[in-house]
Design a protein around this nucleic acid. Structure first.
Lengths: 173, 173
DNA sequence: TATTGTTATACTCTATAACTATA
DNA sequence: TATAGTTATAGAGTATAACAATA
């Protein structure tokens, strides 16, 4: 009788659920949510050429992104203007309030990540990351090879230089 | 310059998302969804004394569970009747169609689990599970010590005996 | 015609609050 | 009063399809 081992899919699911809910709570207290955080984060650390790219980085459809952008716009956190050169493109930018909201969420995300990592060594993290990547690879969805998150942790990214390192944070969905 | 390591919260989130979507697709083709699968699974492998227990095992509120039960009832997959002894309790049971739906989803879940586990050794799985449990513990949510999933894989649980082993499957949410 | 994005609409999952029925 | 469950209502997140604007 082999020792019991519950399906890793379920383990992943359950863990993602608890961690995700905790992260949502943390972001909520900073006035955000996971999609909002990912949107602001991506706006800060990359310069998505268009909304399709941004949507992809966030992991939603374009229409879904518009939905979130409308909400952010209504809250005064972003502005949208036409690109002068290619007027089909809407350039999305953070307002002052948006920058502040970003910083609050970033703080919450970093604090959460510290809590989440408590007691884990670098080796543990590498190990976990590797295993997670293998799972993702196994289900096909040929994961984004270059993570859309980066930058953060260090003081707000310096203008003119596309940051490439240091943790932000996010959590399961 | 320390090597880049993206936040595990985000890694977990992204992995859970892709795996979850793949699992949802798999269940969808079998006529199900994650909550539906978890409900049927729990009805089969434990005998939840009441809906509160069932809701807890599935990870939702009682009202949310009722919502799902209503849908399952409408689809003719379950029946609800009052318990003869304590008439406040609604005994939920699978209909014949429910049993068949369960088997289809179980098949899909098992196939998915095999795919997900491709190339992973038992040690890998134990390792991953251990790390996931540590993450869950770190965010407080004092995880269910005794997993609500078990039974499955072997032929449908024999009546009169609460099964205790072998993988079902579930995936990230 | 192809690209970029928005609007309209709807579905799923979830939750809270108020209610019914039973004890 | 306390317990078991349902109903009513709502909100977040997501999606598809149809549309408008621009190239």
């Amino acid at each position: 009788m082999q020792s019991f081992r519950s399906p890793i899919g379920l383990e992943l699911s359950q863990t993602a659920r608890v961690v995700s809910r905790a992260f949502d709570d943390a972001l909520d207290q900073a006035g955000g949510s996971l999609p909002v955080w990912l949107i602001l984060l991506n706006l800060k650390i990359r310069r998505p050429g268009n909304q399709r790219e941004l949507a992809e980085a966030v992991g939603v459809r374009e229409a879904t992104l518009t939905h979130h952008l409308n909400a952010l716009d209504a809250r005064g956190l972003i502005t949208r203007r036409r690109d002068a050169v290619n007027r089909r493109i809407h350039v999305v930018e953070l307002t002052q309030a948006g920058e502040e909201a970003f910083l609050r969420m970033r703080e919450a995300a970093l604090a959460f990540d510290r809590r989440l990592n408590d007691g884990l060594t670098d080796a543990d993290r590498d190990n976990l990351t590797g295993l997670l990547h293998r799972l993702a690879a196994n289900v096909g969805a040929a994961e984004n090879d270059s993570p859309p998150w980066a930058g953060l942790a260090e003081p707000p990214p310096k203008p003119g230089r596309r940051p490439t390192a240091a943790p932000g944070t996010g959590a399961a969905e």
